[in-house]
Amino acid sequence: MASVTVKHLWKEYGDQVVLENLNLHVADREFVTIIGASGCGKTTFLRMLLGVEQPTKGQLLIDGQPVPAEPGPDRGIVFQRYSLFPHLSVLDNLMLGLEFSGSRWLGKLFGAKRREALEKAESLLEAIGLHTARDKYPSQLSGGMQQRLSIAQSVIREPKILLLDEPFGALDPGITADMHEIILRLWQANRMTIFMITHDLKESFQLGTRLLVFDKRRHDPHAPERYGATVTYDIPLNRKKHTAPTPALTAELVR
C-alpha cells in the first residue's frame, strides 16, 4: 500500500519559488508519469518524496504519514546515472540491498541466507536479461544494461514507491522499448506506486496510468523566480486503449 497525498505544498529556496500550492492524491499502484519544462520543479518534487529535500509549506504524505526526512528502503530510486556501485559486480550490485537488510553489521550474507538471496538475485537477473553479465563490473556494461540493473537493484528491496528520474534520458531511442517492457513487468510483479519523470512525451503517455504536467500558471517576466510551478494538467491514461496525446494537447505541452 502506498498512496501519496500532497496538500498545499510549497517549495521555496530563499526568494525563488519552485513549487506553489501543489495538491494531489495518487492512489496505490498508480504509475504516474511527470513531464514539464526544465526548472519546473519535477525533480524537486521527486527529491521531496525521496526525503532529501523538505517542503517549505504544506504536507507531503505517504499513506497518511509525512515523508521521512531521509531516504529509506520504502522508496526506491533510479537516477539517470551514477546509481550503481562501481566496485561491485553485477550480481553483487543486485545482492547489496538484500545484504543490507539481512546483516546489520557486516552487510554480507552467509550460508542459507546467502543462498536464498542469491536465488532471488539470480531470478531477477534472468528477468532483466543480465544473467550472462553477472560477474562483470558496471563500467563494462552498456548504458541500457546499467539502467536495467539499476532498476532491478531498486526493486529487489520491494519498495512501496519507486521513483524514476529520467531513467532512460541518456539511452539510445532504440533500446527504450526494451526498458519500457521491463519496467512495466516489474511494476506489475511488485506492488509499487511509480513516479517517473521523463522528457519524452510519447513515453509519458505509453507507460503511465496517469500523467502530470508541471508548469508555471503565472509568469512575471521581470521576476521569473516570483512564481512557482504546479500541476497544470492531470490526465488519467488507459494503457490498454493506448491513449495518445491529442494534437491540441501536444501543441500545448511542447509550447
Binding site: V52, G72, F79, S83, L84, L96, F100, Q153, S154, P159
Partner: peptide, 10 residues
C-alpha cells in the same frame, strides 16, 4: 546519487 541509492536500499 550513489549514497542516496544505498540509503534507499536500507
Amino acid at each position: 546519487e550513489q549514497l542516496i541509492k544505498a540509503q534507499t536500499l536500507g
